[in-house]
Each structure stands twice: as C-alpha cells, then as structure tokens.
Computed example of a mutant assay.
Amino acid sequence: MRIIYALTLLLSLSLSAPDADADTLTFGVVPQQSAKRLAQLWTPIFNYLSEKTGETIRFSTAHDIPTFEKRLLAGEYDIAYMNPYHYTVFHQVPGYQALAKQKDKRIQGIVVVRKDSPLTELAELNGQTLAFPSPAAFAASIVPRAQMGLEGIHITPKYVSSHDSVYLGVSRGFFVAGGGVMRTFNNIAPEVKAQLRVLWRTPTYTPHAIAVHPRINAETVAKLRNALLAMNDDPEGRALLKAINFQGIETAQDSDWDDVRALKIKLLDDLLQ
C-alpha cells in the first residue's frame, strides 16, 4: 500500500517538478528559505561536488515544506537535505539513508520577536498568533509548539512556508513572534536580523541529514561521501560550507537520529499509511 501511494504521488508531482536527465542526480534542499536564496547558497556547492565526483548534481527544492515532504515520500530527490524529523519519517518510506550531517552541530530551535518587543518570557505569548514555517518543521515548529503545550501556553499557529517568511513577518509586525532555527536566523538579511531578537531557545538535537535514496548505487554513494568529507580539508570547500553556516561535514548513520525518534512524534504518520 505504501509503495502504491508513493508511486501515485510521484506521478501526480511530475507535472510540477523540474525535469531531470537520467544521468543527473537531483539534490533536494528543504525550503527553509526562498528558492532564490537557497539556489544562491547551494548551487556553488553542487557545482563543486559535481566536479569532484564526476556526477552531474542539480539543485532542487519545493515552494513549501508540505510539498517537499510529498516529494520525499515519492522518492523524487536522489539526495536530500532534510530536517531531523523528516529523516526519521522518510528513512522508513521510501528508505532514504543518512550519508552525512553538519560537523559538531546540534540543531536548536528559537522563538524570535521584534527587538523592540516588551516580551521577555515564553508565557507572555499566551493567546497570540505565532508564525511558523510549517507544521512539521522540526526545531522551528514541532519542538516550540510542544513546549508551549506542556506549559499551558495556548497560541494560534500560522504557517507561512519558510523560515525567511517567519523572520520577515515578525520584523514587519505582522506577528508578535515566530519560530525558526539558529542557522537560518544567522543567515538572513542583516537588515531583517537587526530588527529581531531571540526570546527563547529549544533543547538541542541531531541536525539535518544529508541522505540518499536507496536507488543510488554504492559506488556513487561512496563518491558523494568522499567529496563531502574532502570539503573539510579544501579551502574552497570550507568557504562554500561557511556560506551556509556549516563548520564542516561528518559522516552520519541512521542511529544518530534516535534522539529525535525518542520524542515519538506522530505528525506525519498518516502520510505513510
């Protein structure tokens, strides 16, 4: 049943998804920021990896996170950069396997407010409408909302499609607060960041996964892993990683995300039925 559903999704998405040559590896990046911004940041990395591996690696994303989730389920991306919760889900179906992750990094969610906001505590958000990237954005949405629920803080979530949209909406006063993560907060336009401050931080978890679809052969996987790790020792590679606020790359294995599995999040369970 899961296989049939995934095939159905793949067919339904083929009209809206970019075409790719059979010899091209499509690398999907979770749309935490605008497609234009992500392309600016990641395309140079994919050009670098293409040169080092001899494979053609093409940037791809989706217009919002729910669409990205559907494309992961359909196995549309050969390689994908996905949030920790997404990895635990899409490792099950269609079977994405962790390849690498950001080195010496733990992901941390944040709740931001305008710099001139009088708010100083999470409890003061009770009764307010908050901006979030999507229901299943792990550190930017799932963890903050769960914590507020535990503390009896009742908020109305408004999903605005990306981390950048959250930050922009809060900076412009459309929302009193919103959820994000430190990496994207540090990567937004300086004029937007200057108008914001962090009100609250979540606990830390294993960060986003770089994972490969099971159809990718072992030889190609090995070339990708070696090229990613080699970036750590190459000045050009380090500069490219710095542009996305990575201090480095390290190998990853499936069990690295057991801390996320321990949270027993069920949000996307229906997607796998």
Rank of each mutant, 00 (worst) to 15 (best):
H91G: 13
V198L: 05
F175V: 06
R106D: 14
P118D: 07
A211E: 02
P66H: 05
P157C: 06
I216K: 11
N245V: 10
Q253M: 11
I4A: 15
K36A: 15
A39I: 00
A252C: 05
S12K: 15
T156L: 12
I216E: 12
P44C: 01
V198S: 06
A74G: 07
A194C: 07
H154R: 14
R37Y: 13
M231P: 02
L150K: 15
Q108P: 00
Y85N: 10
L125R: 00
K70Y: 10
D78E: 06
G179M: 03
G109Y: 05
N187E: 10
D19C: 12
Y159T: 05
V30M: 15
Y167P: 08
V113M: 02
E250V: 00
A252S: 04
K101T: 07
N217H: 11
I155T: 11
L130F: 05
I155E: 04
L7I: 11
L41R: 13
T120L: 08
M82R: 12
S171D: 09
A189Q: 15
E151I: 06
P144V: 02
V93F: 13
I3R: 13
V192M: 11
A39R: 10
T184I: 09
W200K: 01
K103R: 11
V221L: 04
N187H: 07
Q102N: 11
G54C: 03
L130K: 03
S16N: 13
M182P: 00
Q40L: 12
A230T: 04
W257F: 08
L130Q: 06
D104Q: 12
M148W: 03
Q273E: 15
R58G: 03
G54P: 01
I155S: 06
G149Y: 08
A35W: 08
L25K: 00
A227C: 02
Y167A: 12
A17V: 11
L38Y: 01
V170K: 08
R215S: 12
E55M: 03
K70S: 11
L13S: 10
Q147L: 14
D258Q: 14
G178F: 05
I153L: 04
F27D: 00
L99W: 03
E121R: 12
A194S: 11
P66D: 05
A211D: 01
F132H: 09
V113Q: 03
R37K: 14
Q92C: 11
H86P: 10
Q195T: 04
S34K: 09
T156Y: 10
L228A: 00
T43R: 00
A136C: 09
F132N: 08
H91R: 15
A252N: 05
L130Y: 06
F246Q: 02
E236G: 12
A100F: 04
Y85V: 09
A20G: 12
T8V: 14
I57L: 01
T56C: 09
G127R: 03
F59M: 00
E236D: 13
I216Q: 11
A136D: 13
I153W: 04
G237K: 01
F68L: 01
P190S: 05
